[in-house]
Design a protein around this nucleic acid. Structure first.
Lengths: 236, 236
DNA sequence: AGTTGTGAAGTACTTCACAGCA
DNA sequence: TGCTGTGAAGTACTTCACAACT
């Protein structure tokens, strides 16, 4: 079978835009809850926390869903974005690694309301097998491949310790999974065609620390060149 | 006092580079643990999961820490990056909202080993006050400002429900915090000069769903134009 | 009159490819 | 010889500013 487009985004929606669609969806849901029927790009951008030129450009990749001189119909636009992201169907998710974080993810209410169904929980520790978490029995990781196939899982959430992450990813990929969300603080390699996203808590804190240091230590963190500039400035 | 540079990054390290420094640091730590003393940009890039041109360019913003023809000295480079990020000091963190996620974050071992010290836990629910989590007593959110000042907190981690997030951020900013990591699924506005990063679990899943849909539904997701192209191609 | 949708300009990031140095 | 450090070229994203439309 010939491929029509180079794998992702047939209509060529930029990756940066895709990453913002969930944000717009949330803003629209919030407006909808407040009973707002129509919204301008300025107002919607404000609600979503982006600038309006960017918002309009982003939406233009999906189609012409607004009305000039008026704005966007909230429900209509919400439906279009929902469809674009693929949330008109629901996606079965397996969480692998039921430690503190896995527990928290299993109990996180935000998934179900957004088109994701946590279909299975898996852990390598036999003592956890059978334990009930968030209304689901934890299964032993021997059953991982079986669970993925039987329950028609599309997305794997990896919440294992770092040392186990690569092996787990290898197994779910071999079982046919092509979308992985990795919480383990480890570099994981996956083959071409498998989408891997990572959420790394300490990385985020480190980025904050970097900026915090720049703010506090401005005077201490002068480079040699800046010191020279400063000296010149002081001399007049 | 005159500002020497436009607030962040005196030496002008690009934001994209800053976001990768933690990755390099982790790769170097792993090499160091394995007893590797020297590493080439190719090897380090492989370990960190990026390409080597990008790695060399990134490192070049920090200085010339390698040796041509040889590579980088692992311990030395690790120290330089640690210093650049600001992890030679440790940073006091408060976690606000001790639900499932807050619990998981409090118990997450990865922070301490990377220069972050969880100094306080705060929750709005009075029934939680005094409860011990991860060796710390949960304090009531009335004490938030006091905790921040007394314990010299630099970074606030917000793990509250969405509806409380903005108010909490307003309060910590008023108390002098300039770095916030937000896990609440809400758009939060902060003043200029406050660094806000967000981690949004369902957004990540939605991005995966988007790509998953493109893969599976290739044939179903044809646009009108593509259908015409396909028809032409089939006709010959 | 008012707001979208979008070419064009501007900015940021990535990759190439090789000069420069150990 | 081999590998770093970096200008230059290429790509992706953002912002501007206004024509097109209701």
């Amino acid at each position: 079978m010939a491929q029509l487009a180079p794998a992702p985004s047939p209509r060529g929606v930029p990756e940066a835009t895709v990453a913002r669609l969930p944000l717009y969806l949330r803003a629209l849901t919030s407006l909808s809850d407040r009973g707002v029927a129509t919204v301008s790009s300025d107002e919607l951008a404000e609600t979503a926390g982006v600038n309006s030129a960017k918002l309009r450009k982003d939406l233009s990749y999906l189609g012409s869903y607004g009305t000039r001189g008026v704005g966007y119909e909230v429900e209509f636009l919400r439906h279009q974005i929902t469809r674009e992201i693929g949330l008109t169907q629901d996606w079965a998710v397996v969480i692998i690694g039921i430690g503190n974080l896995g527990h928290a993810l299993a109990n996180y209410g935000g998934f179900a309301s957004r088109g994701f169904r946590i279909a299975a929980l898996v852990d390598a520790d036999e003592r956890r097998s059978g334990e009930e978490v968030a209304g689901l029995k934890v299964r032993h990781s021997d059953e991982l491949e079986d669970v993925i196939e039987t329950l028609n899982i599309s997305i794997a959430v990896v919440a294992t310790p770092a040392h186990a992450a690569q092996a787990v990813c290898d197994r779910v990929v071999a079982a046919g999974i092509t979308s992985i969300l990795n919480f383990a603080p480890a570099v994981v390699q996956v083959p071409e065609g498998v989408e891997l996203r990572k959420v790394d808590l300490s990385t985020e804190l480190q980025i904050l620390a970097y900026h915090e240091q720049r703010k506090n230590g401005a005077a201490l963190a002068l480079t040699a060149e800046q010191a020279v500039e400063l000296a010149k400035a002081v001399r007049g």
